[in-house]
Design a protein around this nucleic acid. Structure first.
Lengths: 161, 161
DNA sequence: GAGAGACTACTCGGATACAGTCTGTCCGAGTAAATCCGG
DNA sequence: CCGGATTTACTCGGACAGACTGTATCCGAGTAGTCTCTC
């Protein structure tokens, strides 16, 4: 069980988009170039973000993507679920039903105890992702990324808009 | 991202093995029959448990598996990691290195901030799994499974040893 | 100089291809208990 | 009745195959700015 590359890619893309001047868009091509990832495949991931309402796009020249909400209203969970789907990471197939000792009409009133524990862990994972917003990430990056690299990157992006 | 079927299977198997009389083994064949899953593929999963030191096996007739430790010393995390591996669920490929603004000799002193947040969520998931032991599961099952099904199943297992 | 039309650069969505993982099967080697057989 | 040989029932490990998912590429359709051309 491992998350897709696309999750890493779009998280980095969101970090860039968060620094974009209001009203400006950044194209998939530029985002792909900046991160050194295949443009067309990254595009697929961004489409998912768009469908999830995290980013919005515009067509035509000078088109591209921008955040659809302020960065403090976008959590990591939003982004991860947009790409990975919001389904549970543990699927219960109710194999307890195959128990040869069960009568045919037996009916359980609760989900399988094993599944409940696995889902509980899943919830903990989601809660943790939910507690982290994009703006918190930007704050961390501002502190940690060297100032010259930070401004150079900002200018690189600005030149593309 | 979804966990393997094998995780569900071996968790159920562990629950059965926990109820085994001391010193007795239960064969893969019986475990597979009880849960209605393919014997040979289940065997692969149990081998992983064996390598992880969670269960131990013996060869020959009346051979099979039993728990290697008391049930309260086996956590869900132990079992899940035995099957899924103990690696992170988020792989950081350091795509920040592809930033065209970086000088070639630039070196980061910390892991990527995005990866750190994802790993933090991963830790929360693992912590949750770690807090649940096999014996706690047995306790829940004893309460929730109807008494007649519970004893019938126990006798079914007993008859196989 | 203004307006209509052509052009361009981008997103969007579908089709396709390839690789890797998950799921499942098959079989041979090794092992330990049970059984058999000769003395 | 005893001890060694054989059989049996199991695990272990590798090889293999099919299905599904993840990764990636390509292309056509649609769209919004920009440019050009004509009047």
């Amino acid at each position: 069980m491992i998350l897709k590359n696309q999750v890493e890619w779009v998280l980095h893309c969101c970090a860039i988009l968060a620094g974009l001047p209001a009203g400006k868009y950044l194209s998939t091509k530029d985002l792909a170039e900046f991160h050194g990832v295949p443009k067309e495949y990254l595009s697929k991931a961004l489409q998912h973000l768009s469908q999830a309402g995290i980013v919005e796009s515009t067509l035509g020249p000078s088109g591209g993507y921008r955040l659809a909400r302020p960065a403090d209203a976008i959590t990591f969970l939003d982004v991860v679920e947009a790409v990975e789907g919001s389904g549970r990471t543990f699927a219960c197939n109710n194999i307890r039903n195959n128990n040869p000792c069960r009568s045919a009409d037996h009916c359980d009133d609760k989900p399988c105890a094993i599944a409940r524990i696995m889902w509980q862990a899943d919830d903990a994972w989601r809660e943790s992702l939910k507690s982290q917003t994009l703006s918190a990430l930007i704050g961390t990056l501002e502190q940690e990324v060297p100032a010259d690299l930070w401004t150079k990157s900002a200018n690189w992006v600005l030149a593309k808009t």
